[in-house]
């Protein structure tokens, strides 16, 4: 259900981009999906198939997901570490004063037409 909602936003933005560029059919949509974005790529592509085939512009269009790693920066010692392995606590100095640097992206990278 979560992924289906996101698919509707992707369709809206791709339609708008297609209109701007005068495109009649989109072959592939390439997404950047962060590791901690709460999106499951397999569910996203399943929902995509169901919803995209209802649109002339997107019939048969493939959705490809690039998975981007999540990295956290520690404000105390400045180290950067993989978020999924260590979570909120810095593995170098033990501080919990950390901030997610990247990995929560849900963005449309490009379309192939």
């Amino acid at each position: 259900m979560h992924e289906l909602g996101i698919v509707f936003y992707i369709i809206r933005d791709v339609k708008e981009a297609a209109r701007e560029h005068g495109v009649e059919h989109v072959k592939t949509v390439v997404m950047n999906i962060g590791e901690v974005s709460t999106v499951v790529p397999e569910y996203l592509t399943d929902c995509w198939r169901w919803a995209a085939d209802k649109e002339d512009l997107l019939r048969g269009c493939e959705l490809r997901c690039n998975l981007l790693p999540a990295l956290t920066t520690c404000n105390a010692c400045g180290a950067q570490y993989p978020t999924v392995q260590h979570g909120i606590q810095c593995p170098h100095c033990g501080s919990k004063d950390t901030v997610l640097k990247c990995g929560n992206e849900i963005e449309i990278k490009e379309i192939e037409v």
Binding site: I6, Y9, E105, I106, K109, I111
Partner: peptide
């Protein structure tokens, strides 16, 4: 053969909502 053109978008799906 079909020629494929790539259009870069680089847009978060949250952007319009924000």
């Amino acid at each position: 053969m079909d020629s494929v053109k790539v259009i870069e978008i680089k847009k978060s799906i949250f952007e319009s909502n924000e």
